[in-house]
Design a protein around this nucleic acid. Structure first.
Lengths: 173, 173
DNA sequence: CGTGAAAAAGCGGCGTC
DNA sequence: GACGCCGCTTTTTCACG
């Protein structure tokens, strides 16, 4: 694997170099927010033994530090007409930097591509895709893979069961 | 492309029966909330040409219907000591129902396993795992895979770049 | 669905340790 | 520097038309 200077931190959202470490209060707050970020600061304060303003200051600090990346509503894909989830392993012909970057760009711009990771191992990319039906997936493969002559091969895994939908990060005790 | 959604059935994750279909207002609201669910209802109302209480009623309805699965803070894994993301394809020896279910249970209960899908294709499961370092991953493989004699083999893909972190669902226009 | 009032939550300053 | 207590402002919530 030709590892160029791969910075694991991507996108300007890297953590500030000198961000103060998280204490147990911060972790307790995060544990609540990643389950339900509509929880009032008052209740969070009671749960962690802190006043509401203290909770508020910590949340704001963690947002600015990038610890909290965003606050979002999680939508059930089936409810908006995308009931099928598919994993795809993509292997490229060439791993030249420009071609890798071109692939990243194309995958990023495709709305059906929910997640795209550049990986080591026997594949170069792993994609998580949601579609309305297999016809839509077939059309997508034509555009993304067969229509791209830098794609050597790809393997498809259709999800039959979403056993665990991890949004939660395992927090230290 | 039809505006209305078609039938939405996907195994266990079915929606409550007879939930009213989503109209273009609902979709516009969802598009905002899945990007930032702290957006005031007043601003959402201005964006979609609706009053704040109307927005609020629609949001509540979609929450109860399961269209909005949850409201969460997205945490940067690196900030909480889990900078490494790994994909794993797992192939089982036997696909007997009890063994499949046992595997589902074990993966679900493992905190490092962020996502777990039961899939068709050349593998049976695909896992998304976050860990502090490769030592932690090696320990995990011993527990989950080498320590489980129903696991025939597994393939590891270490993420070098999170090109796209899709939480957003592609909404119809 | 919109209007308007009441309740609640978010937000900021100030004194204290 | 961080906390807690106080107000003020904004948002949420729930009548009713």
């Amino acid at each position: 694997m030709s590892l160029r200077n791969a910075s694991l931190f991507h996108r300007g959202t890297a953590l500030p170099p000198s961000s103060p470490p998280l204490d147990s209060f911060d972790l307790a707050i995060l544990a609540i927010l990643q389950r339900d970020n509509t929880t009032p600061q008052r209740l969070i304060g009671e749960a962690v033994n802190l006043s509401a303003p203290a909770v508020q200051r910590r949340i704001k600090r963690m947002e600015q530090a990038g610890v909290i990346a965003s606050n979002v509503a999680i939508i059930e894909p089936a409810a908006v007409g995308q009931p099928i989830t598919i994993f795809v392993e993509v292997e490229l012909e060439s791993e030249r930097t420009e071609l890798i970057d071109a692939a990243k760009r194309q995958f990023s711009q495709t709305p059906e591509v929910q997640q795209c990771y550049y990986v080591t191992g026997e594949a170069d990319f792993i994609l998580v895709i949601t579609v309305a039906d297999m016809g839509a997936y077939e059309a997508l493969t034509r555009k993304l893979f067969f229509g791209n002559n830098n794609v050597r091969k790809f393997r498809t895994f259709v999800a039959m069961d979403r056993v665990k939908v991890g949004l939660t990060v395992p927090l230290p005790d």
